[in-house]
Amino acid sequence: MKQHLSILKIGGNIIEDDAELDKLLKLFAEMDNPKILVHGGGKKATALLPKLGITPKMVNGRRITDAATLDVVLMVYGGLVNKKIVAQLQALNCNAIGMSGADGNSIQAHKRPVKNVDYGFAGDVDSINADLIKNLLHLGITPIFCALTHDQKGQLLNTNADTIASELAMGLGNDFEVILYYCFEKNGVLRDISDEDSIIQRINSKSYQKLLSEGVISEGMLPKLHNGFHALNNGVNEVRIGNLALFEKENSNYTTLVL
């Protein structure tokens, strides 16, 4: 029987809120089974860019990562945010290790081809080094991945954290029973964004398409559901979307994705 593995991606608003992040990391540290945490840090990077004389560039909600922006993203994601999380987890007796995709050649990617928009040094994932990550987990070490990958030619790439979490879940699905969590400030996928109680508790492939056509799912929720269903179609056991209540045993007020 396969061992359970929890892969948790945390959203930017949780990273920005010290109290919420502290609560989440305590819950994460208390998980007995092997676990991986994935984070971004886009809001911190966006706030820092103008202070360094760099104008943030976004198209359709996605960051344009030019060379100067990539340097800032590297500092924020791989340094500031990652190492603070690792240090907090060590204080909670969770033996964490901070990682980018370049560390241990853990996540290879390629620079996104230019079609309608040139996203600069944005990466699309090609492969996961499952053996390395599996060995770390078996040693009782918890990987903390920032949203950076590499192309094995010396180039780091800014990569969507939702995608990294999904790719890790798929890459480790042969060795573990994987539950993928997308944890952010909302209670789950909401039918009405202004009503926190309008949680859609269960979404399958058919209802997902209907919600897309109705415009219920849009903007920041799109990559979570796209990657969630992609993961389910490629061996991941379960995908849950919600806030910190995801980890309360008696709670069912979150969204579960099913095929």
Rank of each mutant, 00 (worst) to 15 (best):
D17W: 10
E177T: 14
I193H: 03
L89W: 04
N95R: 14
L148C: 08
K206V: 15
A102C: 08
F145N: 01
V81Y: 01
G220A: 07
F145D: 02
N116H: 11
V117M: 09
A161E: 08
N60C: 08
E248M: 08
S106F: 06
V86G: 02
Q201S: 12
E250P: 01
D18P: 04
F229C: 10
R202Y: 06
G228F: 06
I199K: 04
G235I: 10
R202C: 12
K83N: 13
K26W: 06
I7F: 03
K153G: 04
S207L: 07
F145S: 04
D71N: 14
D131M: 12
A87N: 15
N158L: 07
P143D: 00
A122N: 14
N95A: 12
R63W: 10
G98S: 01
G12M: 05
G11W: 05
A130L: 01
K210C: 00
I10V: 15
V73M: 13
A165P: 07
N204I: 05
S166K: 04
Q3E: 15
D151C: 10
K115V: 13
N82I: 07
Y119D: 05
G242M: 02
G140T: 01
Q108P: 00
A147G: 11
M99G: 02
I54S: 07
I241A: 06
E219A: 15
V125P: 09
N251M: 03
S205K: 13
Y208I: 08
S252H: 14
L180P: 08
L232R: 10
N33H: 13
L132W: 03
L92K: 15
G215C: 03
Y208N: 08
L168V: 07
E20N: 07
G40I: 08
Y119C: 07
N233L: 09
V125C: 07
D71F: 05
N116L: 10
